[in-house]
């Protein structure tokens, strides 16, 4: 069987690399955590991999703004390589800080454009908060979202969030409409019954409760919640999951690995 090689990009302040690696490996991928300096040194190294992951954390301390310094660094030093990778339809995921990086460098919502046209800003509460939330999913089957990462998920799942800057804001109404039209808004914060949530279930005041988006092709996925923290049922506050053992976050990683296979 084909080995699915995953690259997890590391730099100063990357935190969630261990658990993201564990999640991909649980789904059968071969994972390497690679420091950005190594990629800058060997610019084509990235093409040895099938999946690219930007993990959570506080890259460069989130100084100035979350993900800002890393997104600039990647764009300025490796921009063309990452764009090429993104346009080759290989799966890319950005989780939390990784999502902030993808958005600020412009690989989301549209890698062809490769420009920042949306942002993740300070939570309305102006507080860093760690909690579990419900997410309403839009799936390929039902809503014809192209997102390869979110197939086979139930309508509502729960995941943990931990961020201070997760309020998604598109630059204009037109972009919001097209995100909606193309079913790119794959995760929205939700109440347990699927209705519109209030704080704290809407943790940050995102426009239209946006928690995660993908590009039109569906290979690039960015989200504020942490699926890597819910690959086992044990990790759920009430130890809930599927098959008695796994957490719903695992499906997300499995989808990408299966897609490559």
């Amino acid at each position: 069987m084909k080995k699915v090689k995953t690259l997890i990009l590391r730099t100063a302040g990357t935190n969630c690399d261990y658990e993201t690696q564990a999640a991909f490996e649980l789904c059968g991928a071969v994972v390497e955590c690679v420091h950005i300096n190594t990629l800058i040194e060997k610019k084509d190294k990235i093409f040895e991999y099938d999946i690219l992951a930007f993990p959570g954390g506080f890259s460069y301390g989130d100084d100035i703004a979350s993900g800002k310094i890393l997104s600039n660094e990647v764009k300025n030093k490796l921009g063309d390589k990452f764009k090429k990778f993104a346009l080759s339809d290989k799966p890319i995921i950005g989780i939390c800080n990784g999502f902030q990086v993808l958005v600020k460098m412009g690989l989301l919502p549209e890698p062809k454009l490769f420009e920042q046209i949306s942002t993740l800003s300070y939570n309305d509460s102006d507080k860093f908060e760690c909690r579990w939330v419900y997410l309403k999913t839009e799936k390929k089957v039902k809503n014809e979202s192209n997102c390869i990462w979110t197939k086979n998920l139930p309508d509502i799942i729960s995941l943990s969030i931990a961020h201070g800057e997760g309020k998604f804001i598109p630059n204009n109404k037109k972009l919001l409409n097209s995100l909606n039209k193309n079913n790119q808004i794959v995760f929205r914060y939700s109440s347990k019954d699927g209705s519109k949530p209030e704080y704290p279930l809407d943790p940050n005041g995102s426009i239209e409760q946006i928690a995660g988006i993908c590009n039109t092709k569906g290979n690039i996925f960015g989200l504020m919640p942490h699926p890597e923290r819910y690959v086992f049922a044990l990790q759920h506050p009430a130890k809930e999951g599927f098959d008695g053992e796994y957490g719903w976050g695992k499906i997300i990683f499995q989808n990408a690995v299966d897609f490559v296979k």
């Binding site: 935190n15 969630c16 261990y18 658990e19 564990a22 959570g56 760690c130 909690r131 579990w132 939330v133 419900y134 729960s158 943990s160 931990a162 347990k192 279930l201 942490h226 890597e228 923290r229 819910y230 690959v231 044990l234 990790q235 759920h236 506050p237 009430a238």
Partner: peptide, 17 residues
């Protein structure tokens, strides 16, 4: 919850809220 290993958490309930 960072590192994904906190299975008995400081705040507890029977659901996620």
């Amino acid at each position: 919850e960072v590192q994904g290993q906190t299975v008995i958490k400081p705040l507890q309930g029977n659901d996620i809220e």
